[in-house]
Design a protein around this nucleic acid. Structure first.
Lengths: 333, 333
DNA sequence: GTTAGGTGACGTATCGTTAATTCACCGTAG
DNA sequence: CTACGGTGAATTAACGATACGTCACCTAAC
């Protein structure tokens, strides 16, 4: 491993100059010739600054943690790209953690922070909010930013309410009247989506169905469909809160002999590549997850720089309806 | 931030003793009473060792990198769990990287290694092998372990050949004779799976079809199906090399009016939760990805400890056929 | 009474970087 | 001729943890 000392020796200068060249420090001055010599030496010896030493000296590592609820949820794919991209703009590295892992391996996040492994944390975990992990987090001085509407931390979020509105309005425009809203859990971002649904229903002079909060994933979709069918007035259309639940809805509908979209229209919130490869291809509201990742990182760096932060929702780009084949006009047969 | 100095002061000992208590060093001895006092002080002051300082002193960070080809491929979900679990057994942290990101953000991996950010690398990237990134990697002293059959690095792998055999044999037992093999790219692990297919076909006295290497993902499945239909003898069954391609096969079959499994049986290699929620649910060969992750980490730690490594395939558990609804007996109608 | 050996602990150099302080030199103004 | 300011550097003290070398003290053997 080549160190600044090696560079200094071969360039015939002191380590102070090497460090100054590296960091563009104005305090320690040098001539152009000297700077060039140092740069040349760095090139020749393939110098790479030692991160551990920098971290120790500067008391920051240039690493941020991203904690996600379930890493393998495909809606995170774009988020990840956004986060990685923005972090590398800032010269930072991303440490990715799954919230499950976090809970099991004792105080994963806490250790990251207090051991100085990361400079800040980006967190998106819809199920963590009541945990004592959160309490631990709050007791630490390093910034934490939530990628969800959050009452405990600064946050940036996507426009969940708008997504609910868009999905619902689309179905209303297709002349559906009995529209149910399934999936997710109460008290989360999902609540916002339900509010959007509720709002649109009321605007249309209709009674909103209760939120069938069956949870997450494929199974939640199947459960949601079954519960929706028990509703006093069986729905002709469904807003599905969680995109992977849409897969479950399709499967359950198939198993129950319900044709989608002819007998049941389905619109999902969040769009992933998979949706266009299902049959029927699923109409979904695309959320700006890439932008969320970017904005989250920038906001976190802001926070780390000590700037005050105003939490808020990303409004551009807007959630966008991607029309495919799982929803169609209600025919009065 | 609490340091060893603080502990030493409050416990009335020197930092040397604090460090010794922490590390169980035998060199520096102490009485039980002293040790207890130090531990108590650590507890009281909520001491957490500073990672940066340790890394600098010990010249290792306790962090390993895991580089995957496409993070959002669901087959990696179990792998991740295996890796995270095993790493935390070793007291290590995992830095996750996507190979795409790596290529774009200049020399991501190289920097990780030479800046001493990680102690070793676990890599699974089917498309990286001819890249000059690999050349860069090899020029570094820190251990790299591939999670794929690899001619350049030590590796651990799963039994891809066996998976090909199992899928093919299952279809043969269902009386299929014209079986095609689609998806993937030549020269990779996928080659092994094809060899397994080939072997079983020959055992059964049949002519193997050529490997229709249409690549990865859903589109590859659709392309593979179309190419398979062009074959001199149109197949009645398909072995699909990549599980996400199975989704594409199903969609393309639907679009072409081919009923699965009645007109076409499909078996995928690799199993993910999604497969049981598709209609028809996809019969697939489950690969021990969790175990691959574990074994990879253990092997990497072995390597980092300076032990010689013998590359090899994980044979227990064996690839396991999960029978669902996408493959059925060939009826001679 | 001296010393060898064991016990329990301390002092400090070191890892590679950064940044504050110091310093030598030179040209020029007074 | 001296003082002074500017230029271009070098020295060095941290940052926190680790481990080597040292040392004081006590007991017991000779």
């Amino acid at each position: 491993m080549t160190t600044q000392r090696d560079i200094a020796r071969t360039a015939g200068v002191s380590v102070a100059v090497v460090s100054a060249v590296l960091n563009g420090t104005t305090h320690t001055r040098m001539s152009e010739a000297t700077r060039a010599r140092v740069l040349q030496a760095m090139e020749n010896l393939d110098y790479q600054p030692n991160q551990a030493a920098r971290s120790l000296r500067l008391n920051r590592t240039g690493m941020i943690a991203l904690i996600l609820h379930k890493l393998d949820n495909p809606v995170y794919a774009d988020l990840l790209r956004g986060v990685y991209g923005a972090a590398s703009e800032h010269g930072g590295t991303v440490l990715l953690g799954d919230a499950e892992t976090m809970r099991s391996s004792s105080q994963f996040v806490t250790r990251l922070l207090s051991q100085g492994t990361v400079d800040g944390i980006l967190i998106r975990d819809d199920q963590l909010y009541d945990d004592d992990v959160m309490a631990e987090l709050r007791s630490h001085p390093k910034p934490i930013l939530s990628l969800d509407h959050d009452q405990h931390h600064p946050w940036v979020g996507i426009d969940d309410r708008r997504a609910g509105e868009i999905a619902t309005r689309f179905l209303l425009n297709l002349r559906h009247r009995r529209i149910a809203f399934i999936g997710g859990a109460p008290g989360h971002a999902f609540q916002q989506r339900y509010l959007g649904y509720q709002h649109e229903m009321q605007q249309a002079g209709l009674e909103p169905a209760p939120h069938l909060a069956t949870g997450f994933g494929e199974q939640a979709g199947a459960d949601g469909l079954r519960q929706a069918l028990q509703l006093p007035a069986a729905p002709t259309a469904l807003v599905v809160n969680n995109i992977m639940s849409a897969v479950g809805v399709l499967a359950a509908a198939h198993d129950l002999g319900i044709a989608v979209p002819d007998q049941l229209s389905v619109v999902g919130i969040h769009d992933v590549a998979l949706m266009q490869h299902l049959r029927p291809a699923v109409t979904a509201v695309r959320m700006p997850m890439y932008e969320l990742g970017q904005a989250g990182v920038h906001a976190l760096y802001d926070l780390m720089a000590g700037n005050p932060h105003t939490s808020g929702t990303i409004t551009t780009p807007e959630p966008e309806l991607i029309i495919r084949d799982s929803a169609t006009t209600l025919t009065n047969t």
